[in-house]
Design a protein around this nucleic acid. Structure first.
Lengths: 195, 195
DNA sequence: ATGATTCTAGAGGGGTCTCTCCAATATTGT
DNA sequence: ACAATATTGGAGAGACCCCTCTAGAATCAT
């Protein structure tokens, strides 16, 4: 029904990921993406109405890809503690498998200009965040510890701490060591407390 | 011996901190600092040879101010576990006392353009990092657990996890809750394992 | 073939930022 | 009073970036 595209959305987003890894979110400019993809700026603006939309899409695509497996891990086992371990491991394993996108995950939505996003993009981000929050609260409840504070501790164990482990190595430039998944699991179990 | 300065270094760095909190490291531009301080750009360039130097100074000043108390906490008690608790608490307490500078601490040197820093600035950053690494390794040894992996776990307990706790609240925009220090301490103890 | 549609292609305006440069100015030591 | 000096004050060049706009090319449906 029309001319075929030489530069499709995913391809441009891949370029954006590379640029963000190399120079941070600030390095993801419309002209940098165009140059790196070998495309004229017009093609980039044809796909994305502006820089804010590009940044939103690259962030949301990455987060949603990560969360897909994360949710699966969180409900992977009838034994809640085993699910928790799977979730902690998933953070590390996914980062190992996708080091570029993992580097993005270490930033926050704010670093990708959340304040300038469209209403839809913000809603999409909130949807994902809420889902994570609810899943972690449910897991905390299943562990027998309810309340805001217990959920906070579970979040630290299954999200922040594994991410910190990843950050520590990616920031230093070296790949994740072989024992990283095991370490994330041990730490998560220690934080969840005795059964 | 000369005309008195209307804009001294610390004053300009304070402005830089405010800008970084508001718009991230990318918002710390020479012209933004000048405008926010009510100074002409020439005055800013008189204090700092360029933007890289300004970013390095604002980052290093913040980190060094934080580390000052952190080292004291790490060696505050003959009982190693008590020192560890003090260190974990310090991260949260310092962030509570200095929310602006704490927001900077959640970034990394790379976000402040480390790649463009002078040799001196980089050496200064390395010196601080090495000192932290050594202190944590010594503490790990005192706990009876030696080796790379034990040090990594101690670092997670006494640096990354308390920082994650701070990040979680600052990113959301709310102040640190009253129980934050206690939570950091509990989590740190859980990660260090049984005595 | 023809028109409709989708996309490429890139020039250029308007803005911001970094950094340089020079004149003006206020203070101190003598 | 006067020279020395550290600093202010700001204009402006050059680079980069965001975005708009127009022209044309490639494809599909009829």
């Amino acid at each position: 029904m029309a001319r075929p595209s030489r530069f499709d959305t995913d391809q441009l987003l891949d370029v954006a990921v590379r640029l963000a890894v190399a120079s941070g979110p600030a390095g993801v400019t419309m002209s940098a993406v165009a140059k790196e993809a070998g495309a004229p700026s017009g093609s980039v603006y044809h796909r994305f109405p502006g820089r804010a939309a590009l940044l939103a899409e690259v962030w949301l695509r990455t987060v949603e890809r990560f969360q897909e497996g994360y949710f699966a891990a969180l409900e992977s086992d009838p034994d809640v503690r085993r699910s928790a371990c799977a979730a902690a491991r998933h953070v590390v394993a996914w980062s190992r498998a996708h080091p570029g996108q993992a580097a993005l995950l270490l930033y926050g939505a704010q670093d990708f200009g959340r304040a300038d996003w469209s209403e839809e993009h913000r809603a999409r981000a909130d949807r994902g965040n809420d889902r994570v929050r609810r899943s972690l609260a449910a897991l905390a409840a299943d562990l027998g510890a309810e309340g805001h504070r217990a959920t906070e501790r579970v979040s630290l164990a299954l999200v922040d701490l594994p991410l910190s482990l990843v950050r520590r190595h990616l920031r230093a430039g070296d790949p994740l060591p072989a024992h990283a998944e095991a370490l994330a699991e041990e730490c998560a179990l220690a934080l969840l407390g005795p059964p």
